[in-house]
Simulated assay, not measured.
Amino acid sequence: MTLATKDVVSSFVDAWDYMTGQYPGHLHARTPGLAVSLSQTNCSFFNMLVVDRPIDSAAELHGVFAEARRQDAQCPHDSMVVVCPEWLPDGAEAVLADHRMVHFMNMWGMCADQLLPPRRSPPALDFRLAAD
């Protein structure tokens, strides 16, 4: 796991908080291991429960999912739990099955510890003031 992964997840949570915050009655909460962004709408894509850090054990994952269920109970609509696969502990498949979690979709982003230099020079730009 890289620091960049934490930054990507944090940016994701911030974006979902911003989007879901536009809806009246939205719910945002942070609990140990879980970021909650519920729009309270019937679009599960805007009702997200995000595991926001690496989980060390199956027992801890059970606890995070139990908290996700408690938070989800505050929303009358479906929600999605987002988990970074590299943050799951050994035995996670059994925990996912115990909580009746199924894979729904891949969310992806790009992160790297460092970027390679550009392959070519940037183009010359001509900035002009536009006035009507």
Rank of each mutant, 00 (worst) to 15 (best):
C43G: 12
L38D: 00
A130S: 15
V13G: 07
A131S: 14
V83W: 08
F46R: 02
T31C: 09
T41C: 00
W16K: 07
D52C: 00
A35F: 01
S79I: 04
D113G: 14
S121H: 11
K6M: 12
N42E: 14
V13A: 10
F127N: 05
C84T: 09
A66R: 08
S44F: 15
N47S: 03
D98F: 05
G109M: 02
Y18R: 12
V50S: 00
C43I: 15
D113I: 05
V81K: 03
W87M: 03
I55W: 00
V13N: 07
A130H: 15
V36E: 00
M110Q: 11
P85R: 05
H28L: 14
D17M: 10
V83P: 05
M80L: 13
C111I: 10
T41E: 03
V102R: 13
D98G: 05
A35N: 04
A92D: 05
P118V: 03
T5R: 13
L49G: 02
Q40H: 12
D56M: 03
Q114G: 10
V9E: 00
P117N: 02
A124C: 12
P54A: 10
P32F: 03
E86S: 12
W16M: 14
M107L: 15
E93K: 09
Q40T: 07
A29D: 08
E86D: 15
V64C: 00
F12V: 06
F65S: 00
Q40C: 06
C111Q: 13
S79A: 13
V9M: 06
A35V: 04
R53F: 04
P54M: 09
G63F: 03
E60F: 03
N106E: 15
P24Y: 11
P117F: 00
V9F: 04
C111Y: 12
A59W: 04
V13K: 02
L27M: 09
L38I: 01
M19N: 12
F45K: 08
G91R: 06
P32V: 03
R70G: 05
